[in-house]
């Protein structure tokens, strides 16, 4: 057991930052992200013996974070008080179009259904391929494609033509 906990501790310490960032992008809330990582790492510890190496453990932990996040969103069973808005400080500087577009985009990302948000985070933050994202989510590649398309379509619709224009301008710079 001592060897196991030693190997797990090394894994958890080295991967905690990356796992927390991933959970935060899914949850959009620091407290909830912390809970997600804590729960996922606990499950990883329980399963540590059969995971064998840190690569398996990393994939397993991300899978647990993702499925737990989707479940919690569906159940919405947490009643304890949570901060409504814990958006981290943005880099200082003037609020140009780029910053405005990012703020809008972040806000609208929070409003997407959890699975669509998860797919976008996996594809555009984690840089996973459609096949890798499908494996992690436990769904088909076609589902990843359709969820990505729906998520992007909804973002465009919610942001409206002005915001899309700003973003296109920003991207073109």
């Amino acid at each position: 057991m001592a060897d196991e906990s030693g190997g797990f501790a090394q894994f958890a310490t080295s991967r905690h930052r990356a796992l927390y960032r991933y959970a935060y992008l899914l949850a959009g809330e620091r407290g909830l992200a912390e809970d997600l990582v804590q729960e996922a790492l606990t499950k990883t510890y329980v399963a540590w013996r059969r995971l064998h190496d840190s690569a398996n453990a990393d994939a397993y932990t991300r899978k647990v974070i993702t499925n737990t996040a989707i479940t919690w969103w569906r159940r919405k069973s947490w009643h304890s008080e949570r901060p409504r808005d814990d958006v981290p400080e943005l880099p200082t500087g003037h609020h140009d179009d780029n910053v405005t577009a990012r703020l809008w985009l972040w806000e609208e990302l929070q409003a997407l259904p959890p699975r669509q948000r998860a797919v976008l985070v996996l594809r555009y933050y984690e840089d996973l391929t459609e096949r890798e994202a499908a494996a992690l989510l436990g769904c088909s590649i076609g589902t990843v494609k359709s969820q990505t398309a729906h998520g992007l379509k909804k973002l465009r619709a919610r942001l409206g033509p002005d915001a899309v224009l700003i973003m296109e301008t920003v991207v073109a710079k």
Binding site: R17, Y20, L25, Y124, Y125, M167, E168
Partner: peptide, 22 residues
């Protein structure tokens, strides 16, 4: 749009402070 989406996610992830690992 996806370029800006990636920038937004990366920026947000980078700005959030890692909590204590218990």
């Amino acid at each position: 749009m996806t370029g800006l989406l990636k920038e937004t996610l990366t920026e947000r992830a980078g700005a959030v402070q890692e909590p204590h690992l218990d």
